[in-house]
Design a protein around this nucleic acid. Sequence first.
DNA 1: GTCTATACGGAGATAGAC
DNA 2: GTCTATCTCCGTATAGAC
Lengths: 215, 215
Amino acid sequence: MAEQQIVREARKRVRLTPAQRTEQILTAATRLVARKGYYGVSLQDVADEVGITQAGLLHYVRNKEGLLGLLVEQQYDRAGTPQDYIASGDPGAVHPDGPSFPGYLRYLVAFNSTRAHLIQLYMVLGAESASEQHPAHAYFADRPTSVWELYSSIAWRLPPSIGSFDEIRHLVEMSLEAMDGIQVRMFRRPAISIVEEWARFEQVLFPSPVWDDYR
Amino acid sequence: MAEQQIVREARKRVRLTPAQRTEQILTAATRLVARKGYYGVSLQDVADEVGITQAGLLHYVRNKEGLLGLLVEQQYDRAGTPQDYIASGDPGAVHPDGPSFPGYLRYLVAFNSTRAHLIQLYMVLGAESASEQHPAHAYFADRPTSVWELYSSIAWRLPPSIGSFDEIRHLVEMSLEAMDGIQVRMFRRPAISIVEEWARFEQVLFPSPVWDDYR
DNA sequence: GTCTATACGGAGATAGAC
DNA sequence: GTCTATCTCCGTATAGAC
């Protein structure tokens, strides 16, 4: 009798608000796509984890590409931005001469170390999307450009000896490359702390004495 | 009539030596898995590209994991090794005090820039295999260790001021991370030269004056 | 908003003929 | 060594009931 009731309970249709469901779908899809890639995940997998049917899921995402769109557009770049850093009140961020760029990168790495699932998702999607046929190809192919545009819109506090735009652009490129590399390394053995590993890169990318008062 | 003959021609069974077929399978699978990942590729896809049936392919690889085994074991580490560098006759490689480690890394990057397909394959597999359920998980998880073992078996020509094992190990780790990051960047826009990009990392990872006579 | 039912195709794997 | 045939299961997507 108790058992029957449990079964009925489990099958009962639960009607959630669209925002709640979308949140659930996002969480489930992030975990699953991080694990098996876009091509490796089925709508049924995601639906099962959310607790709805596959047809019910399609009501939200229209088709499989819509699910990917949800993942790509709505997560990664909404937190950990330079604006978030500035708003964090970190001493390096609120300096009267402008926020510290190395300080922001430290902030970003520390933040990313708390969301390994998301890092894994973006590592996997970033790798599969190298092929031009992948539905997220354009998004990832343009990331270096869009990140540069985002970063170069900020009035960072930079050492005067950093003259050319080219020099700082290369520094940004190398920082992103080092971070991507560290994030790949993060899932291997022996385990490392990405915060510590980034500190080593910071030392060589933003060396003394030039950057001593600008970190 | 001519058409019929063409059809017959196309369907004619061609019996190749195992080595030739395996080579074809390797080439096809590399391209396809690089593009869509392990989960995204079907045995049928590979069989089509080789020009045999799916059952014919299974004769060679036994099951899908066997195909992955072929890819992982038989390609990446068979060329571009420190031994190949030493045998290349490069001036930095045949120095009487031992081969140059930065010189080897330059050699490796230059070599990798000629085999982008393979780099893409390993980037994709390396990303998907972060999940513990992936059949190549152990191989990629252990790569930092096995690469370190390979590199530390060589009597490199190192600056005397590099004292501890720890110091050189961190340098190796950072070099691998930077390379992985550059390789991710390689498939994005604007296009970059991984050789040039590595030269920038070499400057900061192996700086003057310490490394001046050891590059 | 969520379900069931269904259409239609593709997946991996095996058996056995040639 | 390679094929055809077949098994069994899973994939996306749509229609329509509730």
